[in-house]
């Protein structure tokens, strides 16, 4: 039986007057690929931030890889948790190249005062090869396209050698080809490295078809949790997005949802 690697109990998180999570409980076992779906403002990103210890819990308990998260004690946990954010605008003149950005993934593992050695650079180069970016290793990071930047983010996570892989809308604002390539890459890496993956998206087209489990979120709560087949139905989505079933069915047909 697989062990539980993420155990969230009744988590409440708020940002000033807005409550982002209203008592969320979730267990994820090792090796699962969980898609977290919901409309904007559902609390999906906040859920990821409490898994890597960056979110501030108002109440509730979070244990990740056996580590009970408390305010300020997340640094050592984050070394084992890879995080891929949305594509961000990077200053094209930023004096950091692709290879150096991927190396940042190892900095937490290295700890204070230790500099990257030959082994670390070898890990970085392997990660770049895996995401098919070795040929752009020396390019300034700000010169890459959105899809290339996401490949670099994924390579950075790989260089970190994490046990948990968190992806926050990694395909948002990418074109269709780049989206499909990133989705394929994420799944391949999940399998290859035997990771536990949480994949957040508000866009059903971007949910990897191979995810084992789907968690539907809305208004800071987990709305439903189950297999993609059970949950990604016209009826469930109509409740989640507050649209008539017929409208959801029509849109899914017309836009080839999932």
């Amino acid at each position: 039986m697989h062990k539980t690697v993420i155990d969230i109990e009744n988590a409440v998180v708020s940002y000033r007057e807005d409550i982002a999570l209203r008592g969320v409980s979730l267990k994820v076992t090792a090796g699962e690929f969980v898609g977290i779906v919901g409309p904007n403002g559902a609390g999906k990103t906040t859920l990821l931030t409490i898994v890597n210890g960056l979110g501030r819990l108002l109440s509730g308990q979070v244990a990740v890889l056996g580590h009970h998260i408390k305010p300020g004690n997340g640094h050592s946990l984050r070394k084992k948790v890879g995080y891929v954010p949305q594509v961000e605008q990077i200053d094209p003149r930023m004096p950091v190249n692709v290879r150096e950005v991927v190396m940042i993934g190892r900095y937490g593992l290295l700890g204070w005062l230790r500099r990257p050695g030959k082994h670390d650079w070898a890990v970085v180069d392997k990660a770049l090869e895996l995401v098919d970016m070795a040929q752009l290793a020396r390019r300034p990071i700000g010169h890459l396209s959105g899809g290339e930047q996401q490949r670099v983010s994924i390579a950075r996570c790989l260089a970190q050698e994490p046990e948990i892989f968190l992806l926050d809308e990694p395909t948002a604002s990418l074109d269709w080809k780049a989206q499909s390539e990133i989705l394929e890459l994420v799944k391949r890496i999940h399998d290859l490295r035997h990771l536990t993956t949480l994949f957040v998206t508000h866009d059903l087209k971007c949910l990897p078809i191979t995810c084992d489990r789907v968690v539907l979120m809305k208004d800071g709560l987990i709305w439903d949790d189950g297999s993609p087949k059970e949950l990604l139905t016209d009826e469930a989505l109509s409740r989640l997005y507050e649209m008539p079933v017929s409208a959801v069915a029509r849109r899914r047909r017309e836009t080839i949802l999932v």
């Binding site: 960056l54 946990l77 993934g105 900095y107 950075r156």
Partner: peptide
């Protein structure tokens, strides 16, 4: 380079 990224790798 990116403070949030630095935080997310344990720095």
């Amino acid at each position: 380079f990116n403070r949030d990224m630095a935080l997310s790798v344990g720095i």
